Simulated assay, not measured.
Amino acid sequence: MSRSAEIDKIYQEDQKTRTLFKRGDVYDRPAELKSDAANRMRLFEMMVDDLPWNARDFALVSRVFQHTNTGGESEENENWRSQENHLLGFFMSRKAARLGILEEAGSMVSRIERYLKASGIPREYGLELVSKTPFKVCTINPRISDEQRLDAGLPLRLNEMMKEFCH
């Protein structure tokens, strides 16, 4: 599917939910929130994949995004920061690894860990660095389906996304 066609599909899904809301129809709010988050994550991923940056830029920006407050930290007036920054940092680290900075493998793992911790999702839903040489990052528990991750509040299809790194 072309990027434009996929963006249009995501937009149409988004607008369908908004139309139900505006009309006062009954809809599944938890399902809508999960779908909205999954759609934002796909747009983040597409955005990162199209940026004309080098590997080092992606790695550095990922480190900046990791410093999103996790909600459990006592910082005054920091509750406005979105946990999705950890996931955007994950995409940045993944892109840096794709471009050759293999030490970003651990960063992919830590960005997901920070999101899971902040969201109260068990660590087993995340990633692990299996090997540095050869480079290999896999889901901790591949028996947990991407749908189960989505239901738990992790809006990423990690099993699918990590196939290129877990071989």
Rank of each mutant, 00 (worst) to 15 (best):
R18S: 06
R56V: 05
M1G: 14
A59P: 01
P30Y: 05
P142Q: 06
G100C: 05
E103A: 14
D28N: 15
L154H: 00
E78M: 06
R123G: 03
R56Y: 04
A55D: 08
N85T: 10
L154W: 04
L99G: 01
G126T: 04
H86Y: 15
E73F: 02
K16A: 14
G100D: 07
P30G: 02
S62P: 02
S145K: 07
L129Q: 07
G71F: 01
M161H: 03
S4A: 15
R81N: 00
P122C: 05
M108C: 06
G71P: 00
L43G: 01
Q15R: 15
R149Q: 08
P30V: 04
Q148W: 01
R143E: 13
Y115H: 06
D28G: 09
E73L: 11
F90Y: 15
D151G: 03
F58Q: 07
M92R: 07
E84T: 06
R23H: 03
G71S: 03
S131K: 03
K132G: 02
M161A: 14
S93W: 02
P52E: 14
R157S: 09
L116I: 05
H167Q: 07
R143D: 14
G120E: 01
S145R: 10
K163W: 05
G106S: 08
E78F: 07
F21Y: 11
Q15S: 11
E76Y: 15
G71M: 02
T19E: 08
I7G: 00
L150W: 07
L51S: 06
K136H: 07
I101W: 06
Y115R: 04
R123Y: 11
W80M: 05
M41I: 07
I140M: 12
V64N: 11
R42F: 04
S74Y: 11
G71D: 00
E45Q: 12
L43Y: 04
L87A: 10
I121H: 05
P134W: 01
I140Q: 08
T17S: 12
Q66W: 10
R56G: 02
S62Y: 07
R3W: 05
I10N: 06
R94P: 01
M46G: 08
I10H: 07
N69A: 12
A55M: 03
I101A: 03
L99S: 01
K9A: 08
R56E: 14
R23W: 02
R157A: 09
M162W: 00
A152C: 00
L88C: 11
R23Q: 09
Y11V: 11
T17H: 12
M1K: 09
